[in-house]
Amino acid sequence: MMGWRGRIGFLVPPGNPTVEPEMMQLTPAGVSLHFTRMVAHGNTGAHEGQEERNRAQIAHLDENAALLAMVKPGVMVMAHTATSYTLGKDGEATLIDRMQREHRIPFITAFGSVVAALAHLGVRRVAYATPYNEQVTALGKAHLEAHGLQVVAHGILPGVKNIYDETPERAYQLARQTDCADAQAVFLSGVGMPTIAVLDKLEQDLGKPVISSAAAMMWNALRTIGVCEPLQHGSCLLTGIAPTGTQEIKS
Rank of each mutant, 00 (worst) to 15 (best):
W4E: 07
R5I: 07
R5T: 03
G9S: 10
F10I: 07
P13G: 00
P13W: 00
P14S: 12
N16I: 01
P17S: 01
P21T: 00
E22M: 07
E22N: 12
M24A: 15
Q25H: 06
L26P: 05
T27V: 15
T27D: 10
G30F: 15
G30A: 15
S32A: 12
S32H: 04
M38H: 00
M38N: 01
V39G: 03
G42W: 11
G49V: 13
Q50N: 14
E51S: 08
N54G: 12
I58C: 06
L61S: 02
D62K: 09
A65P: 14
A66Q: 07
K72E: 15
K72H: 15
P73C: 04
G74W: 01
V75R: 03
V75N: 08
V77Q: 05
M78D: 02
M78A: 05
A79P: 11
A79R: 04
T83P: 12
T83L: 08
L87T: 00
G88Y: 01
G88H: 02
D90Q: 15
E92N: 14
Q100M: 14
Q100Y: 05
P106N: 14
P106C: 12
I108N: 01
T109Q: 03
F111W: 06
F111G: 11
F111H: 10
G112F: 04
A117G: 04
H120D: 11
V123D: 04
V123L: 09
V126A: 03
Y128V: 09
E134Y: 07
V136Q: 11
V136I: 13
K141S: 10
A142F: 03
H143E: 12
H147D: 12
V151A: 05
V151I: 13
V152N: 06
G155Q: 15
G155S: 09
I156M: 12
L157N: 07
P158A: 09
G159H: 02
K161C: 02
Y164H: 11
D165K: 13
D165T: 13
E166Q: 15
P168V: 10
E169I: 10
E169F: 07
R170E: 05
A171D: 03
A171Q: 00
Y172H: 15
Q173V: 07
A175L: 10
D179K: 07
A183P: 15
Q184D: 10
S189M: 03
V191K: 02
G192L: 06
P194D: 01
A197Y: 04
V198T: 08
L202Q: 06
Q204A: 15
Q204C: 07
S213P: 09
A214K: 02
A215G: 05
M217C: 06
W219E: 01
W219T: 00
N220I: 09
A221G: 05
R223M: 14
R223S: 13
R223A: 10
T224S: 08
C228W: 05
C228F: 08
C228T: 15
L231M: 06
L231P: 06
G234E: 00
C236Y: 00
L237K: 03
I241H: 04
I241F: 02
T244I: 13
T244H: 11
G245V: 15
Q247M: 11
K250G: 05
K250S: 09
